[in-house]
Amino acid sequence: MANEPVVLLGNEEESAYIRKRLIEFNAEHVPENLSSRFEEINLTIKDDSGKVIGGLLSTLCWNWIEVEILWVEESQRGLGYGSHLLHQIERIAKEKGCTFIKLNTFSFQAPEFYQKNAYIEVAVFKDAPLGSNHYYFKKAIF
């Protein structure tokens, strides 16, 4: 029987190496015109004084955009800023030839908001975190 491998916490350099190797592997299995597509796309909304009151952080990868964070200052919610951010990233996704947008949210955040904006629930993890649900959404881009 082989010896058990030693598993250690990796440092930043080792993490970068592992990420690079997986990206190289993935590139061999993705159409060439998509293999190098990776781009951060971040949007902000500012008030008249220049203060950031909302934003959307996302990554374009291959043929989709993943929205990682959408946030609007609590006092500014319900004014359409979140929907405006979604519409902007959808426009960008279309311009860049993406076929869908994916994102996730928790039950204590905004699943109804995404449904209202035509995002389709594709998965849910119950009790993640305990007492809440973790939702995954997708919207096709035409």
Score class of each variant (00 low, 15 high):
residue 5 P to Q: 07
residue 7 V to T: 10
residue 7 V to S: 03
residue 51 K to M: 09
residue 7 V to W: 11
residue 130 L to C: 10
residue 117 N to C: 08
residue 60 L to H: 06
residue 141 I to Q: 01
residue 99 T to R: 14
residue 90 E to G: 02
residue 60 L to Y: 03
residue 92 I to P: 00
residue 141 I to K: 11
residue 133 N to H: 15
residue 140 A to Y: 14
residue 74 E to Y: 00
residue 36 S to E: 14
residue 15 S to M: 13
residue 27 A to D: 12
residue 24 E to F: 00
residue 60 L to M: 11
residue 10 G to W: 06
residue 45 I to T: 01
residue 27 A to T: 09
residue 128 A to Y: 15
residue 104 N to K: 07
residue 51 K to Y: 03
residue 60 L to V: 05
residue 65 I to W: 02
residue 42 N to F: 02
residue 39 E to D: 08
residue 82 G to S: 09
residue 107 S to C: 09
residue 63 N to T: 10
residue 96 K to I: 04
residue 27 A to W: 05
residue 51 K to F: 08
residue 142 F to A: 15
residue 81 Y to P: 05
residue 14 E to I: 09
residue 89 I to L: 03
residue 44 T to L: 12
residue 138 K to D: 01
residue 86 L to V: 04
residue 15 S to E: 14
residue 107 S to F: 02
residue 93 A to G: 05
residue 71 W to H: 06
residue 78 G to D: 03
residue 59 T to F: 08
residue 70 L to F: 01
residue 23 I to V: 13
residue 44 T to Y: 10
residue 40 E to Y: 10
residue 20 K to R: 13
residue 100 F to S: 14
residue 1 M to L: 09
residue 35 S to I: 00
residue 40 E to N: 12
residue 139 K to C: 02
residue 61 C to Q: 10
residue 104 N to S: 14
residue 8 L to D: 04
residue 15 S to A: 14
residue 110 A to M: 03
residue 64 W to P: 00
residue 102 K to P: 00
residue 47 D to Y: 06
residue 42 N to M: 00
residue 82 G to F: 05
residue 8 L to M: 06
residue 62 W to G: 00
residue 139 K to P: 01
residue 60 L to S: 02
residue 135 Y to Q: 07
residue 33 N to V: 07
residue 128 A to E: 11
residue 7 V to Y: 14
residue 73 E to S: 13
residue 45 I to V: 15
residue 69 I to N: 07
residue 129 P to V: 08
residue 87 H to C: 05
residue 129 P to I: 08
residue 45 I to W: 01
residue 85 L to H: 06
residue 124 V to F: 03
residue 128 A to H: 14
residue 103 L to N: 04
